[in-house]
Design a protein around this nucleic acid. Structure first.
Length: 570
RNA sequence: CGGGGUGUAGCGCAGCCUGGUAGCGCGCCUGGUUUGGGACCAGGAUGUCGGAGGUUCAAAUCCUCUCACCCCGACCA
């Protein structure tokens, strides 16, 4: 490919809308252009990257035995009503009517349609197992799209669905996909980690997320450097402190803390560690008021809390509700001398002695509070907090560390959730009817492009792993339009590279070298060859990897081989 | 949905407070000089100043409403 015949639309300055590095660079490099909030055009250069990611995913999915198909983006409401997701999905599901006033949706995912396919086509156990996937445009009307393509409303996803006669076979395919995803992300050249994940509203028994490691990631990951434990913080279990509760040492005391409404302020005023302060969080679930207790240095894990049966679908209490039940303003509430509602203590709080909490009297806190002596034991002790760095690993093999990640893949064991709702059954060898055991497996194709940049960029631009770079190698001739020798050499090198299977780009624009260097670096081409009269005289060309500080001279005859043997800049 | 912010040429911005014929840099077009790290000179094109309404002799500028976009939070297979 020649730049003169291609569309390179780089910008010196990034549009002001972009904050995140990958978003700015994608705009500057001309990979994408925004059309509306969360909706982007993939420019030719960006599309090349998307296609390369797709190709690797497709190749590995096929190798793993999955079969590709393509389902409609526009789907009739009936199926969604049948699965009840027409009601459950909420405003993220974009709905509209056709000219006959019939309801339709733009697919955010395709469980309904694939299950419909399965119940029509997979009527016998003889056809199982079956894994069908598609690479298709998805639409989710995100409340707040952000970071460009990273959390867009329209995006491309690989979604696969597997059908099995029994759970054991689903587990086999789940492991197969775990291994396949590991291969895919390895081939893509990304640093990633598979982490145990919450199954969320989709239900099911097993779930792993594949997270690309990046400080800007939206997800927090807890992992143990001494073992293979890794989980999304949403899920990571916080163990009860070892050693249990110490005996009280002081009598309870009521102390004035005027104006100090946060644990941090109270701890500072009293000169005690934050970890012995207890914060009370008031919730309302259904009609019931509930008080949660956490250590001052811990934060509430709402997903864990929501798993407590009587906290299903909770919300935070309003200030008025707090005053009604606690007879005290927020900021000074606590669990001592309260009645009429349940008190749920985090495991770490239940293990405290001589702790500090609100006195249910504006401007006062209690010190040296002790369970059993100053207040009854909590109604429930549960794990309701986020783990923190240094917590013991749930597998007992060391201490947890935290890092951040970008979720690029997610695998689920759906079990029979959809097959039962949509009455998708097969007949076994005895003629008995059973709902399919199902798995589902997603990869965010377009998000991977942004994640790859988040993971590799410098002040000059993107640094793509070679397997997904828009071009693998570029040739920058100095004096292409002046020197017939330079032109001949550059043309020949480009042809040789392409013949050798290298996706090469020849920058034949009549630009100054600085412009060409800057553009090629901005779009993240991993390998660069510079052809100049100076070098030609010595029979050399100059090679520089995208991450290299300085170029090196190589013989012209070695150029193609050099690029083929250098794996990548990654 | 709550909070904050921004809309002026393709991109980045100034002008607005204090109303008086719309500007700068980059990019783009023409010609010339350049050619190893985003060149220089000369000339040129490009604007419903986000939209609607109002005040005024006069509105990018003041007022009201509205729309779009961005950031934080909440939310989210």
């Amino acid at each position: 490919m020649r730049t003169s015949a291609y569309l390179i639309s780089t910008l010196k300055e990034a549009p002001s809308e972009a904050e995140l590095a990958s978003h700015r660079l994608m705009l500057r490099a001309g990979l994408i252009r925004r059309l509306a909030s969360g909706i982007y055009t993939w420019m030719p250069l960006g599309l090349r990257i998307v296609r390369k990611v797709e190709a690797i995913v497709r190749e590995e999915m096929n190798r793993a035995g999955a079969i590709e198909l393509s389902m409609p983006v526009v789907q009739p409401a009936e199926l969604w009503q049948e699965s009840n997701r027409w009601q459950e999905y909420g405003p993220e599901l974009l709905r509209f009517k056709d000219r006959h006033e019939r309801d339709f949706v733009l697919q955010p995912t395709s469980e309904e349609v694939i299950t419909e396919i399965a119940r029509g086509e997979l009527k016998s156990y003889r056809k199982l197992p079956m894994h069908l996937y598609q690479i298709q445009t998805k639409f989710r009307d995100e409340r707040r799209p952000r970071f460009g393509i990273m959390r867009g409303r329209e995006f491309v996803m690989k979604d696969g669905y597997s059908f099995h006669a029994d759970f054991a076979d689903l587990e086999r395919e789940y492991r197969n996909m775990y291994d396949t995803y590991t291969r895919i992300f390895t081939r893509l050249g990304l640093a990633f980690r598979a982490v145990a994940a919450d199954t969320g509203s989709i239900g099911g028994t097993g779930s792993h997320e594949f997270q690309v490691l990046a400080d800007s990631g939206e997800d927090a990951i807890a992992f143990c450097p001494d073992s293979d434990y890794a989980a999304n913080v949403e899920l990571a279990e916080a163990l009860a402190p070892a050693g249990g509760r110490a005996a009280p040492t002081q009598p309870m005391q009521k102390v004035p803390t005027p104006g100090k409404t946060t644990c941090e302020q109270v701890a500072e005023l009293l000169g005690v560690p934050l970890a012995i302060n207890v914060k009370a969080i008031a919730l309302v679930a259904g009609e019931k008021f509930v008080l949660l207790l956490l250590r001052g240095d811990h934060s509430l894990n709402e997903i864990k809390a929501a798993k407590i049966p009587f906290l299903n679908q909770f919300r935070f209490a309003t200030a008025a509700e707090i005053e009604q039940h606690m007879h005290c303003v927020p900021g000074y509430i606590g669990p001592v001398d309260v009645s009429g509602f349940k008190v749920v203590a985090d495991r770490s709080v239940a293990a405290l002695s001589d702790f500090v909490c609100g006195a249910n009297d504006a401007g006062f806190h209690l010190t040296s509070v002790n369970w059993g002596r100053d207040l009854p034991e909590p109604d429930l002790v549960a794990d309701i907090r986020n783990v923190t760095a240094g917590d013991p690993s749930p597998d007992g093999k060391g201490r947890l560390e935290l890092c951040r990640g970008i979720e690029v893949g997610h695998i689920f064991q759906l079990r029979t959730k959809y097959s039962e709702k949509l009455k998708a059954n097969f007949l076994d060898e005895k003629g008995a009817s059973h709902p399919f055991e199902m798995g589902c497996y997603g990869i965010g194709i377009t998000r991977i492009v942004a994640a790859a940049i988040e993971q590799g960029y410098d002040d000059r631009g993107a640094v793509f792993p070679a397997p997904i770079a828009p071009f693998e190698a570029c040739i920058v001739p100095i004096g292409y339009h002046k020197s017939p020798a330079v032109k001949a050499c550059a043309d020949r090198l480009c042809a040789d590279l392409i013949a050798a299977g290298v996706d090469a780009l020849l920058d034949d624009r009549d630009e100054r070298p600085g412009v060409m260097f800057a553009d090629m670096e901005l779009i993240g081409v991993p390998h660069r060859l510079v052809v100049s009269e100076k070098g030609l005289a010595a029979g050399t060309v100059e090679y520089k990897g995208r991450r290299d500080d300085t170029p090196s001279l190589i013989a012209q005859s070695e150029a193609v081989a050099a690029i083929r043997t250098r794996p990548a800049s990654a």
